[in-house]
Design a protein around this nucleic acid. Structure first.
Lengths: 101, 101
DNA sequence: ACAATATTTAGCTAATTTGCTAAATAGTTA
DNA sequence: TAACTATTTAGCAAATTAGCTAAATATTGT
């Protein structure tokens, strides 16, 4: 795994984490993502490009729009590798069976 | 779980991630941590206080020194909760059995 | 080719972050 | 209590980040 700094920096912003959560449910065009926040279109666009640079989202064009989707694979890989690098096995075991409350 | 912004911000810095990895092996006083980096004592001290504010390390006094240790529990909880919030179950399953290479 | 729609890029400001050195503080030991 | 050691706090400079508005670009549809 390459340096995960960009991934963690990308995740450090609440708006970007919200975007990822929204994309978990459904792939969305930038316009619909913007509509969910009280933030200008260009600002969301920049958040998306930061997420893209970190490898956390992918884009595809569909007609007039650009549809974004989460790269859950990459996200899970980075975070779980880091957990392994810092937490003792015993703790990791304990969290394996975790589900969202 | 409360807002994980502070946790992700803390993890966004490579020096702080290195500190956590070092502390996985062994609890250490701030002085010994500083000796591992090419960074001034006060800067490391601030990194430690950011990690502490994020709940990622604890400190205890031992004689003259203050010994730091990782809160792996908190770290694993925050990260695995976020993975669950963003990744589909199938991906999470695939990463459960991951070990560090 | 032109007009319309969707998104990104540029350029600015205010706030935050990281590094430094110097000074302050806390606890220990003589 | 004075001196010593370990660590933190203050204050400053340079770099980065997040927000904005205005302008540019790309694709579709007439």
């Amino acid at each position: 795994m390459q340096d995960p700094t960009e991934v963690f920096r990308a995740l450090a912003d609440p708006t970007r984490r919200q975007i990822l959560k929204a994309l978990k449910r459904k792939d969305l065009p930038a316009g619909e993502i913007t509509a969910m926040f009280n933030i200008s279109f260009p600002s969301i666009s920049r958040h998306l490009s930061i997420l893209k640079a970190a490898g956390l989202v992918s884009e595809r064009r569909q007609g007039n729009s650009i549809i974004y989707s989460v790269n859950s694979e990459h996200l899970a890989l980075c975070l779980s590798e880091f957990i392994s690098a810092v937490c003792p096995t015993e703790i990791i075991e304990r969290h394996r069976s975790r589900k969202k409350p």
